[in-house]
């Protein structure tokens, strides 16, 4: 028996919005410790890794490890039927081929349940090594989303250069070129608005705008985003989900042809 309850549906709606741009379907691996999801986008350029800890749920029970393959468009249809402040309960029997989403209104006067067929997805899991990154940037998630959106008008790629002084985002194309520089913030009183750079070595890497823009669908989950970079390895874009877990996106850099 698997059962996981959240007192507000909103957080799962946001999580789904953060992954459904990149993934058509995905397997939710449920265990005693929580729910994990790892999946590559269709073109195998990026990887999504989601972790929701069992202790972040308002109720959590998982007697046996369970892999639930879900069509995310269908899951989105169901999640659309929940009000943000409805209590959400996901339920499945052991070895079941369906999952049930139950939504309860705050006053308990409306209870809806939606049953969805599970899929057998043959998904490859990749091992992600623990890495010390040359540069780690923490910045407001809204600011990162804005920069990705603005720069994608000018080219298909964004060059991210990080030094101790700051981080620079650049794009160029037929219309011209664009450069956005962010310096480390000096004040520490507004943590959510700060730009913090931890640098061992300066790094310059090139990434496809399209994927960065998809990652920013996670912006509503968290005030800050963390970018981790080293030469010639995938970028990690991490959004923490307060009290529940995190979503990490890995993006292969573009390399000189």
């Amino acid at each position: 028996m698997f059962e996981a309850r959240l007192n507000t549906s909103q957080v799962l709606k946001k999580v789904l919005d953060a992954i459904k741009d990149l993934l058509n379907e995905a397997t939710f691996d449920c265990s005693d410790s929580g729910i994990q999801l790892q999946a590559m986008d269709n073109s195998h350029v990026s990887l999504v890794s989601l972790s929701l800890r069992s202790d972040g749920f308002d109720k959590y029970r998982c007697d046996r490890n369970l892999s639930m393959g879900m069509n995310l468009a269908n899951m989105a249809k169901i999640m659309k039927c929940a009000n943000n402040d409805d209590t959400l309960t996901m339920k499945a029997q052991d070895n079941a081929d369906t999952v049930t989403f139950m939504f309860e209104s705050q006053n308990q006067e409306k209870v809806s349940d939606y049953e969805m067929k599970l899929m057998n997805l043959d998904q490859e899991h990749l091992g992600i090594p623990e890495t010390d990154y040359a540069c780690v940037v923490r910045m407001p998630a809204m600011e990162f989303a804005r920069i990705c959106r603005d720069l994608s008008q000018f080219g298909e790629s964004v060059v991210i250069s990080c030094t101790k002084e700051g981080v620079k985002f650049s794009a160029s194309g037929d219309a011209g070129s664009a450069n956005i520089k962010l310096a480390q913030t000096s004040t520490v009183d507004k943590e959510d608005e700060s730009v913090v750079i931890e640098m061992q070595e300066p790094v310059t890497l090139t990434f496809a705008c399209r994927y960065l823009n998809s990652f920013t669908k996670a912006t509503p989950l968290c005030n800050q985003v963390q970018l981790s970079m080293s030469a010639d390895v995938p970028l990690v874009v991490e959004y923490r989900i307060p009290d529940l877990g995190h979503i990490r996106y890995y993006l292969a850099p573009k390399i000189e042809d």
Binding site: M40, S43, H44, V45, S46, L47, E124, H125, L126, G127, I128, P129, S157, T206, A208, V233, P234, Y250, L251, A252, P253, K254, I255, E256, D257
Partner: peptide
């Protein structure tokens, strides 16, 4: 000119 590689060339299959 830059070329987009696959994420699978960085992380090994489990």
């Amino acid at each position: 000119k830059t070329k987009q590689g696959s994420i699978m060339s960085f992380f090994a299959k489990k």
